[in-house]
Design a protein around this nucleic acid. Sequence first.
DNA 1: GCAAAGATTTGCT
DNA 2: GCAAATCTTTGCC
Length: 242
Amino acid sequence: MSSSPFERALLESDTTSAARRLLGATLVRDGANGRTRSGRIVEVEAYTGLADLASHAHMGMTARNAVMFGPPGRAYVYLVYGMHYCLNVVTETPGIPAALLIRAVEPLSGIDVMRHARVAVEGRLDADRLSRARARIACLPAERLASGPGLVCAAFSIDRADDGADLCVPDAPLRLEAGSPVAVSDISTGPRIGVDYAPDPWLSRPWRFWITGSPAVSRGSRATRSRAVTAVAPTGGDDARA
DNA sequence: GCAAAGATTTGCT
DNA sequence: GCAAATCTTTGCC
């Protein structure tokens, strides 16, 4: 594993530019016995600051979102729907609460560890359901192990204990590495998922970015891709295309 | 101090 | 395609 750390400076500019740079980067989690997990970031979503009514930060600083107001490169981790964690990479300069939600990762190494971790988070289930979950996860192709924001955290064992961690430090147990940058022509965009509570224009801003054609993107982006393929683009204004 | 909703995923109708 | 699971955070009394 010889890869360079992810440059913090790439996250300091505006969040939508940082989103395109974060695609293709590698998320790494070191574990005991050298069981390292790593994966390529294939889908992210931008939350751009106080004015963004879809962002957790739009009401100002709270105990939960405080990390978003800090320096770039830190992890903002929160619990959604009482059961799933979501990982964000903080962007922009201190004082501006912006971040990129990691929506999907394509596993590269430590895939067996990820399967085990996916099963581990189902521990609340009774024996019967747990058995079925174990069988389902065992059959999943590697590219579906982290193909959603909650699944990324499950596969990489990320929870609130990782909130505030600096992801740009070389050799940190949870970190970002440079990976391989993605050409602009290979990036698709579309509206953010699950933010129906936000009014326009925030609801329809094309601030979800993914690597076109990646088999590891989330369900929402696969759906958008199908629609984009079958849709006839009339005069323009279609945000969801490569 | 209590009630409501949520940056999701899964299984069933 | 829809609703359940589940608990923290936030908003209001």
